[in-house]
Design a protein around this nucleic acid. Structure first.
Lengths: 124, 124
DNA sequence: TTGCTCCTCACGTCACGTGAGGTGGC
DNA sequence: TTGCTCCTCACGTCACGTGAGGTGGC
């Protein structure tokens, strides 16, 4: 598939896809007899994966670590890194839950959202 | 408290705090007889709030919306925006859960993490 | 040939980070 | 006075976005 279709399907912009290819995140794309990039299904999956990680707030260096994990055979002692990432995910989930509860409460009128003071600190 | 202490406590860098003050996100800080900023406890809480939202991947425009929500009286029909944010939070939680399950499985050896193909698409 | 997609630079932008050179305050 | 923190520019950086000018391909 060409870059436009890939962009459409994945929701990743065309310049971003080109940058990811240039920086080796999704591997080199084939080229047509002209100069058009041709992407494989595997590259599409890789791009989906990267997009979701970016959406979760991981920067490109963290994404690269996760891609290495994905590419590596299991039990190559990158477990430590994976565990750190899981810990980061746990923290992020806690914050998401707190914020969500707070917003829901504000919407239902149970609590004024006013006074940010304990938006994250008090209710578990 | 001065900017250094505030930075230490909140984990937000000094240049970032100055930028937030300049852009009106945490309100104007008092100044000492010299030119040193003096921050209130309320500003510290506001900064905590902003930091957590940024950590969750919200950009500064979205943060401003949430701050407006926090400052507004309830039932001022910003409910729609809040609901959109809650929906975004739900999506983000789903992705976090999927990624976490995938990482845990890879670590326990139940699944090879290799083959990103279904990292997000298959297991609920 | 027309219309569309694609190409490669190059410069802009958002949210900061990083010095440069200077001053407050215990 | 020393040592520390703070000040205001100004420029750098990361992860892209946005044209400028040109070409492939059905």
């Amino acid at each position: 598939m060409r870059i436009g279709e890939l962009s459409e399907i994945t929701g990743v912009s065309i310049p971003t896809i080109r940058a990811y290819e240039r920086d080796g995140l999704i591997g080199p794309a084939m080229r047509t007899s002209g100069k058009f990039r041709e992407f494989s299904e595997q590259q599409r999956n890789r791009l989906d994966f990267i997009k979701r990680l970016r959406n979760l707030g991981f920067d490109l260096d963290q994404v690269k670590v996760l891609l290495m994990l994905a590419d590596a055979r299991p039990a190559e002692k990158q477990d430590v890194i994976a565990n750190q990432i899981i810990a980061a995910i746990e923290l992020r989930k806690l914050d998401l839950n707190k914020l969500e509860r707070r917003l829901s409460a504000a919407l239902s009128g149970e609590l004024s959202f006013k006074g940010i003071d304990d938006a994250f600190c008090c209710t578990p």
